[in-house]
């Protein structure tokens, strides 16, 4: 085993993380297997299902379609970083619980990342905008209805908070 290792330093959920990785290690495998941030899931490894969605420098991307070494010097937020540092659920996370916007929980981290990214730029999204935002994330349990409801609920609550 003499695969060359490359140093990577990434700010993950606000904390700098540094390891040595083989070039071919995908970002999602690095997060899961090396950093043990297992909230981000692997569904297809070819960029269709969206279960591995994370935020890279604030924008949602598929972490199965990046190599860990490419993330060097960037900032990443995973589902583990969506809640408050006090362990409290974010408004979106809480809304997913309230509207039961999930069942098995496997696609959920990707759905949360995709819909949080939407809410960051579009505080009052229409149903069509919500569907478009989660359109790259497959869910087999919910038929998407309660996910759409959860995102709408979160938007309403966030708007009320701002008042």
């Amino acid at each position: 085993m003499n695969e060359k290792l490359y140093p990577v330093t990434v700010e993950v959920n606000g904390k700098p993380r540094s390891t040595q990785v083989p070039a071919r290690l995908s970002l999602v495998d690095w997060l899961r297997e090396e950093l043990r941030l297992t909230g981000t899931h692997v569904g297809c490894e070819h960029g269709i299902c969206g279960a591995c969605s994370i935020m890279l420098d604030g924008e949602p991307v598929r972490s199965c379609l990046m190599f860990a070494v490419q993330a060097d010097g960037h900032k990443i937020t995973t589902v583990e970083g969506l809640g408050g540092t006090d362990g409290k659920l974010s408004v979106l996370q809480d809304s997913f619980c309230e509207a039961h916007g999930l069942q098995c929980g496997y696609c959920t981290p990707g759905m949360l990342i995709a819909s949080q990214a939407l809410l960051n730029t579009t505080p009052d999204p229409s149903e069509a905008q919500i569907r478009d935002a989660i359109g790259g994330n497959l869910c087999r349990c919910t038929g998407y209805r309660q996910i759409v409801d959860a995102v709408k609920l979160a938007a309403t609550r966030l708007a009320a908070q701002k008042k």
Binding site: G39, G83, L89, D94, C97, L102, C104, G105, T108
Partner: peptide, 9 residues
């Protein structure tokens, strides 16, 4: 639901 929305499944 709470464990899944926090990535704690």
């Amino acid at each position: 639901d709470p464990r899944f929305v926090t990535g704690c499944g």
